[in-house]
Design a binder for these strands. Structure first.
Length: 151
DNA sequence: GCCAACGTTGGC
DNA sequence: GCCAACGTTGGC
C-alpha cells in the first residue's frame, strides 16, 4: 500500500469537487509527464493520496482521496477535441495513463506549502524541492505521518 | 502578471 | 547525442 500525492488546481478539480459528490468516482486524466505517468501506473486500488492545491490563493495539502481504479489508458489522448489529445498516441500503443479517484476526507485545515517546507523529514519530497514540477509522487509512510501530524 | 526552473522537441 | 528554442508549471 503505497501512499501518494497529486497536485491539482482547485479551479479544475479541488478537494471540494470530491467532497461535494463523495460517492462519485473522478477520473484523473491529462497527466502528460513521463515521470508522473510512471507513478500513476504504480497506483493500486485503495492507495491513499494527498490532494495538493496549486496555482491558487491557498496553496497546500487540502485533503485525502483514494485510488478506486488502477491505471488504464487515458481516453483523452485519443480524443482530437480534448486539450489532452496526443496525436502520437494510438489505442494499440497508448502513451498516457489515467486512474480513478474517490473522496476520503478533507483535512481539518489546509496545510500550507510554506509550512510543509519548514518541516523536518520532508526534504526528499519533490513537492518541497526547489524547481520541482512533478505532479504525481510517492509519499513515504514517515512523510505521510509528519504531514498528518500538522493537521 | 512575472519569471525561474523545468521537460520536450527537433535541427544539426 | 548535443543543445538551443520553446512551451509549461507554479510560486510569488
Amino acid at each position: 500500500m503505497t501512499k501518494w500525492l497529486v497536485k491539482s488546481e482547485p479551479d479544475e478539480c479541488g478537494i471540494d469537487d470530491f467532497a461535494h459528490s463523495p460517492n462519485t468516482v473522478i477520473p484523473w486524466d491529462g497527466v502528460r509527464n513521463y515521470q508522473a505517468r510512471n507513478f500513476l501506473a504504480q497506483m493500486a486500488p485503495n492507495d491513499e493520496v494527498f490532494l495538493y492545491h496549486s496555482s491558487c490563493r491557498h496553496i497546500g495539502i487540502a485533503g485525502i482521496i483514494r485510488v478506486v481504479k488502477a491505471a488504464y489508458p487515458d481516453p483523452a489522448q485519443f480524443n482530437p477535441d480534448s486539450p489532452y489529445h496526443d496525436p502520437k498516441s494510438s489505442p494499440d500503443k497508448p502513451r498516457w495513463q489515467a486512474v480513478d479517484f474517490a473522496f476520503v476526507r478533507k483535512l481539518s485545515r489546509l496545510i500550507p506549502l510554506d509550512e510543509l517546507k519548514s518541516l523536518d523529514g520532508l526534504e526528499q519530497l519533490p513537492l518541497v524541492r526547489k524547481g520541482s514540477r512533478l505532479s504525481v509522487m510517492p509519499v513515504s509512510e514517515a512523510e505521510w505521518q509528519i504531514i498528518l501530524q500538522q493537521e
